[in-house]
Write a protein that binds this DNA or RNA. Structure first.
Length: 822
DNA sequence: GACCTGCTGCGGCCTG
């Protein structure tokens, strides 16, 4: 028996799971593929031991191992997270050391010491655990080929997370490079649950291997159970709102019962508030409850992760910052506060509990308003029906290609034709046309049409006798390396204790509203602002809490299509009087009101409600397509209506529908509605109304950085957002004027349409609506579906001098009264 | 004193 397998079964005493066995067999047979494996089931060993077994088979004489010293880089492991890199290294080190393989193993991420980096500049270890960015960096050194020529297998961990991002594309390009140097190289990916695993495998393997690729599905789906805290009294439960502290007592009761828990929230400020609330009500838990989100200082987060790993925490309140990484033992209870947003997302979070094979993963939903009860019920249906979201791979992000061209030019140079073929072998650039390639080449060699006068943008020099393109100068190579990567983020303000450590970062706009002496809640503690200086807010601990919580302007993830459809189906259930779960029974009175005051929309109808309030005239429509689509749709409808007659219309959206508000009444018959809901000229109208130029301009900022047009400054002295903005705008304007066909501009527009507006989904929504009946209802009072939109509208537009909450409360009371009378 | 929506992730230089 192979010594590695022997180690696994005899020394460690493990019985391989089926998927581990299958993976090793496939790896020994020389195949590539993707493994779908639940967390905590030994996925590192599943893909990590095969290459070791292979090497042992090729070197059967153990006596000779010592003489081999450290073999060249044989196995490369790519992870999206630095924290995962060290966990993985620890797992892989075990068999290497126990078996006595002569392999060396090292990490290569941005935070390894400079001495290790210096050593790796000379020679790489036998096993290297790294990130997509660090791989790219290594590929940018002139001797890259010699260093990577012996790589026999590459493993990409958490591929589902990388695949649909530019980091994934960068990984694809790096893998294509390695495959060219060693065509027999095996590629293996690890992925959590997603809807398009086959495609994920194909993207990972690229053109050459896609046909022979294997897909191994791990353990039969682990059971996931979704439970929900159902409010005792729905009448007093909010119809809108997002904090959900209403259910705090029930959550505390649950926390009392368990030893350890993770409480996921959807936003950072929500996490801060929940953390503060828990500590306030359970003061004796101080030290056992922790907070974890992306704006906290890395050191604070690291500490929480360590304590979590050691099993010393009773509860961690977190955002998706704990979705991945941190190899801790499963917790007893997982909470999801607020909308689950997606089926896969809820499954992944549930998976943080009940790790043992056969154990059930459970998640307890904590709705923050009444309709979220339906979302949890819908997510359960989604999981049972295995209707899990897909992740869509990117199509030809030119900025990533441009960056890669300079990387490769610095990394030993390239032959143009060969590199074109290599790039086209990736899934992302499989349809790259000769013209597009030419454009990219021209852009890096001459600066394109617009920048040819600036030598600085001639980053790649044409062949000089050897047929190879090379980077123009070492200075350019150096600067390029500083900009490698595809993650861009704006500068944030550091929050620092006056005498002491940094607590994390908040947005400048938040601090700008405060004066010295004002208090706010951050990093789980009350703070008082002392002064601001150099993008740093100096604070001291305050004794009393303030309700002021930083708000970050983050992504606005919409309800996924799968979950939105499932929610829609739950309305059908209600229509058919099928109230089969606790959540639906709990919201029944609310749905009953919706039916009485308006209508429960059936699957084949689009409900349009109109109402009059002292703000003006409102139209509400409910396509159930998630907020991004509704944003596009709202803007489109407002635009088209104002084209018909001059009037000012504001649109407000949420995940279920949209509201159009106008000071004057908008009289529309069926035909008028059909016209404004038409798919004709959809993209043109969207571009016209969304001030697409402005959106594209903003999007271009990121593209310009990835493409290497903007130097963001040396580490530690990064340029301000304003500076970066100014230079990217300059490029935008120059391109728009002198190089209108610039592919980077085109990409900016594409990204706005596809990612920010989800045009594809919007178009599908409109097509569906075409086949639907339009049902129009005039409301006497706001319906339960309309109420959250109305409240959102007030919040966004500050339309009333009365305080927002007073107004909302007053309306809620009025509605309650009507409900009671009815 | 109450009210509050919006995620995550990486990398780099200089000197002797």
């Amino acid at each position: 028996m192979n010594v590695v397998r022997h180690w696994f079964t005899q020394q460690r005493g493990y019985t391989p799971f089926d998927f581990q066995q299958q993976t090793w067999d496939a790896q020994l047979a020389g195949a590539s593929g993707l493994v779908h494996a639940p967390t905590g089931m030994g996925k590192t060993f599943a893909v990590g031991l095969g290459p070791m077994m292979r090497w042992c088979d090729a070197h059967p004489d153990r006596q000779s191992w010592a003489a081999l010293k450290s073999p060249p880089l044989t196995m490369l492991w790519i992870t999206p997270l630095r924290a995962l890199a060290s966990d993985t290294a620890n797992s892989l080190r075990e068999p290497i050391e126990d078996v006595g393989l002569p392999w060396t193993l090292e990490l290569r991420t941005g935070d390894v010491s400079s001495s290790i980096k210096a050593r790796q500049k000379k020679r790489l270890p036998s096993v290297l655990v790294t990130t997509p960015e660090s791989l790219s960096l290594l590929l940018s050194y002139a001797d890259a080929k010699a260093k990577f020529a012996h790589v026999q297998s590459v493993v990409v961990d958490e591929w589902h997370e990388l695949m649909s991002t530019k980091r994934g594309t960068q990984t694809e390009l790096g893998l294509a490079r390695l495959r060219r140097w060693n065509p027999a190289m095996q590629t293996w990916g690890l992925s959590a649950t997603m809807g398009n695993l086959e495609q994920a495998r194909d993207v990972l393997l690229g053109r050459a291997k896609a046909k022979s690729g294997v897909l191994i599905r791990g353990e039969s789906q682990k059971a996931v159970r979704i439970e929900t805290i159902v409010p005792d009294d729905l009448e007093r439960f909010p119809w809108a709102g997002h904090l959900g502290l209403k259910l705090l007592p029930q959550v505390l009761d649950e926390l009392d019962k368990v030893g350890s828990a993770l409480l996921f929230t959807n936003t950072r400020s929500q996490a801060e508030l929940w953390f503060a609330a828990i500590v306030k009500h359970r003061p004796n838990w101080i030290g056992e409850v922790a907070l974890h989100h992306g704006s906290l200082d890395r050191k604070l987060r690291q500490k929480v992760e360590d304590l979590l790993r050691e099993g010393k925490l009773r509860c961690v309140v977190c955002t998706s910052s704990l979705d991945l990484g941190v190899d801790f033992s499963p917790v007893d209870r997982v909470f999801q506060v607020g909308s689950p947003k997606g089926v896969a997302r809820l499954m992944q979070r549930a998976g943080r509990s009940g790790h043992q094979p056969g154990a059930v993963s459970r998640v307890l939903g904590v709705p923050t308003h009444a309709f979220e009860l339906i979302e949890f019920a819908a997510a359960r249906v989604g999981i049972e029906g295995k209707r899990v979201e897909s992740r869509r791979p990117l199509d030809r992000p030119i900025d990533v290609l441009v960056q890669h061209l300079v990387t490769v030019a610095a990394g030993g140079g390239f032959d143009e034709h060969a590199l074109y073929e290599e790039v086209k072998a990736t899934y992302a650039f499989r349809d790259l046309s000769a013209e597009q390639w030419q454009w990219a080449m021209d852009f890096v060699t001459r600066g394109g049409k617009a920048l040819y006068a600036y030598p600085h943008y001639r980053r790649v020099a044409p062949p000089n006798g050897d047929g190879q393109y090379h980077v123009s100068s070492q200075q350019i190579a150096k600067q390029h390396r500083m900009g490698i990567g595809t993650i861009t983020s704006d500068a944030a303000m550091i929050v620092k204790l006056a005498r002491g450590r940094s607590l994390g970062t908040v947005e400048e706009s938040f601090i700008a509203r405060l004066k010295p002496g004002d208090r706010f809640l951050f990093a789980g503690q009350p703070l008082e602002l002392i002064k601001t200086q150099n993008m740093t807010a100096y604070v001291r601990r305050a004794t009393r809490l303030s309700g002021n919580v930083p708000r970050w302007q983050g992504g606005k993830s919409p309800l996924s299509t799968q979950l939105a459809d499932a929610v829609r189906a739950k309305f059908d259930d209600a229509l058919a009087e099928r109230f089969t779960d606790d959540e639906m029974r709990a919201v029944r009175p609310l749905l009953e009101l919706q039916r009485q005051w308006s209508r429960l929309p059936a699957a084949d109808e689009l409900l349009i409600e109109s109402a009059t309030s002292r703000e003006g005239h409102h139209l509400f429509a409910y396509p159930f397509q998630g907020r991004l689509v509704h944003e596009g749709l709202g803007a489109l409808l407002a635009y088209r209506l104002s084209q018909q007659a001059p009037r000012s219309i504001t649109a407000t959206v949420n995940d279920y529908g949209l509201e159009l508000m106008c000071p004057e009444p908008i009289a529309m018959d069926e035909k008028a509605w059909r016209d404004v809901l038409s798919t004709d000229r959809l993209v043109e109208d969207l571009l016209a109304c969304l001030n697409a130029t402005e959106l594209a301009r903003r999007q271009f900022r990121e593209i310009a950085r990835v493409a290497g047009l903007i130097f963001t400054g040396y580490p530690g002295q990064s340029k301000s957002t304003r500076q970066l903005q100014a230079s990217s705008e300059l490029f935008y304007d120059v391109f728009a004027e002198f190089d209108a066909d610039n592919l980077l501009l085109d990409q900016a527009r594409r990204e706005v349409l596809e990612e920010q507006l989800e045009v594809r989904r919007l178009k599908q929504a409109l097509e569906r609506i075409e086949a639907m009946r339009l049902v129009r209802v005039t409301l006497e009072q706001l319906s339960p579906l309309a109420f959250p939109l109305w409240a959102e509208h007030l919040r966004e537009n500050h339309v009333t001098s009365e305080h927002w909450s007073d107004r909302v409360r007053a309306m809620a009371v009025a509605l309650e009264k009507v409900a009671d009378d009815g």
